[in-house]
Simulated scan of single mutants.
Amino acid sequence: MAMKSAVLRFEGKPEELVLIELQSTAYMEDGSKVTDQELGTLELKGGSVVLTNGPRSLYGSLQELKSPLVLMERTGQEEQLAGEARAALLRARGVIRRKVVFNQRPQLSV
């Protein structure tokens, strides 16, 4: 079985990203897909984080990851390696060193 290779490239300084971990189910009230929708306003308040959407607030905490992650995307391009080998070219979008964890139910503000 042939092993596939990949080349990972950063263009400039990598963007610092934060992973958002929702330990619940997110859905839109009108039934539309969550993809590409705005989930609300994210605010850092001291050591806690608040995600607010209308009258609902979701409270979480900011945590450091044990090991950083790299967010990559396929470019659809290939690069020639030594000999006849070719490798998929991947673009690094950013580095994730922290995550926000939401593990409670949303609170209703009136």
Rank of each mutant, 00 (worst) to 15 (best):
D30V: 10
R91Q: 07
L17K: 01
T35W: 12
P68N: 02
V34E: 03
K99G: 01
L8V: 13
F102E: 04
Q77A: 15
V18D: 00
S32H: 11
M28W: 08
A88W: 13
S48Y: 10
G46Q: 03
E64H: 02
P68W: 00
L22S: 11
E16T: 03
L42W: 03
V18G: 00
L90M: 11
G54P: 09
A26N: 14
Q77N: 13
A6Q: 15
P68H: 00
Q23M: 14
E78C: 14
E38Y: 11
S67P: 02
L51E: 10
L19Y: 01
K99A: 01
K66I: 00
R93K: 06
V18L: 02
L71Y: 05
K45R: 08
V34S: 06
S67Q: 06
L17I: 01
G76F: 09
G31I: 06
L69V: 00
L90F: 06
M28A: 11
E16F: 03
Q80V: 10
D36P: 04
Q77V: 14
L39M: 05
Y59W: 14
S32G: 12
R74N: 12
A87C: 13
R86D: 13
L89G: 11
E11M: 10
F102W: 05
L39C: 08
S32I: 08
L19G: 00
K33W: 08
N53L: 09
E64C: 00
N53D: 13
L90V: 11
L44F: 14
L17H: 01
K33E: 15
K66M: 01
N53G: 11
G83V: 11
R56N: 12
G40S: 09
S48H: 13
L42F: 03
V49S: 04
S48M: 14
L81N: 08
E15H: 05
E84G: 15
A88E: 15
R56Q: 15
L58N: 06
Q77P: 10
E43C: 07
I20E: 06
L39I: 04
G60E: 03
L69M: 02
